[in-house]
Simulated scan of single mutants.
Amino acid sequence: MAVGGIACSPVHSLRRTGEKLVARRYDLHSHTTASDGTNAPAVNVRLAQEAGLDGLAITDHDTVAGVAEAVEEGRKLEVEVVPGVEISTVSGGRDIHVLGYYIDTEDALFRERLEQLRETRDLRNAMILDKLGELGLSVTLDEVLEQSRKRPGRDETVGRPHIAAVLVAKGYVADMQEAFDRYLASGAAAYVNPPRIRPEEAIDWIREAGGVPVLAHPGLYDDDALVQRLIDYGLKGIEAYHSDHAPETERHYAAMAQRHGLIVTAGSDFHGSRGGVVFHAPLGARSADAAVVAQLQAASVHYERSHRST
């Protein structure tokens, strides 16, 4: 079957390991060099296999540029790759991220919309560099692009981790965490947040591309009114299980999703490692079983259409 012009194999709930049948495991949140991860998409797939995962989602920020490479490697290694994206939005002055699963990655309008988001991200980066300069920290766009190994005009994103890495390399801060705490995190000295789309608009975009909108890491927002508002608007799932969620937070959002008949997803939010430190957590630190992936497939108009046509 084909998803977004990319062949994907069907999900089975169990696999045999030696003499045992074990549940299939999927990490539904990972980033690659297409956005602010440190590993190429194919490397993430190989790491997923080494971690004992049966599949993973590629959910780069505001781009689907890493999906095709990951799916190709997944074919070779028999690792299921879920096409995804993580869309950056703003509500109440805060960053809110909406995951999209099984979107049509070749949809021209969807790709054009993601390009608009990347242009906004580029504007934010420039504003951050200006604020850093005002604080006496000289970081140029060329230095950030060199650190990110990106070229202007490519269908990829450059983000705050790339700026943080330059701050570390130039000795302005000791590590990535200090870079965010002092300068780049929400409320820090060089943080800026230019106008972006609202999360409701991201939900619309994902659904119009045939995909399934899921709210990413709601525990980081600590705003149940926001979550309820998005549920009422048409959200289809909640990422209850996330590496930055405490156990009680995971239970809270899993219960909230179940009360509303939503899909409960899980993901590590793996970004690779910098300076020997893994961000946010290793692949597989949070995982969902095949039943969750089957729910996402059933909720995806694009997946269902692609499946029927093959």
Rank of each mutant, 00 (worst) to 15 (best):
A2D: 14
V3C: 11
V3P: 07
G4M: 06
G4R: 04
I6S: 04
A7D: 11
S9L: 12
P10T: 06
V11L: 09
H12D: 13
S13R: 15
L14I: 04
T17M: 07
E19L: 13
E19Y: 07
V22S: 08
A23Y: 08
R24W: 00
R24H: 02
Y26H: 04
D27M: 06
L28A: 05
T33Q: 10
D36W: 01
G37Q: 01
G37A: 05
T38D: 10
A40T: 08
P41T: 03
A42T: 06
L47T: 03
A51C: 09
L53D: 02
D54I: 01
D62H: 06
V64D: 00
V64L: 02
A65W: 02
V67C: 07
R75N: 13
V79P: 08
E80Q: 14
V82P: 06
P83M: 04
G84R: 00
G84E: 02
E86D: 14
S88Y: 04
G93K: 08
R94A: 11
H97G: 14
G100P: 03
Y101R: 01
I103H: 05
D104P: 00
E106Y: 09
A108F: 12
A108H: 11
L109V: 15
L109W: 10
E115C: 09
E115I: 13
L117W: 07
E119F: 11
R121L: 01
D122P: 00
R124W: 15
N125T: 09
G136I: 06
T140Q: 14
T140I: 12
D142C: 08
R149Q: 10
V158D: 00
V158N: 01
P161V: 01
P161C: 06
H162F: 04
H162N: 06
H162V: 03
I163W: 03
L167H: 04
A169V: 05
G171R: 07
Y172W: 13
Y172A: 10
A174V: 13
D175Y: 10
Q177D: 11
A179V: 08
F180Y: 13
F180M: 12
D181N: 14
R182Q: 14
S186E: 13
A188S: 15
A188Q: 10
A189V: 15
Y191R: 03
V192I: 05
N193F: 12
N193C: 09
P194Y: 12
P195H: 14
R198A: 15
P199W: 08
E200N: 15
E201L: 11
A202Y: 06
A209F: 01
G210Y: 02
V212C: 00
G219A: 12
G219H: 09
D222I: 05
D222G: 07
D223V: 04
D223C: 12
A225R: 05
Q228I: 04
R229W: 02
R229E: 12
I231Y: 11
Y233K: 02
K236V: 00
A240L: 11
Y241F: 08
S243V: 01
D244A: 12
E250R: 06
A255T: 11
H260M: 13
I263T: 08
F270G: 03
H271I: 06
G272P: 05
G275L: 07
G275F: 07
G276D: 09
V277P: 00
L283M: 10
G284K: 04
A288E: 01
A288V: 03
A290G: 10
V293A: 10
V293I: 15
A294V: 04
A299C: 05
H302D: 13
S306R: 09
R308E: 11
R308G: 12
S309P: 00
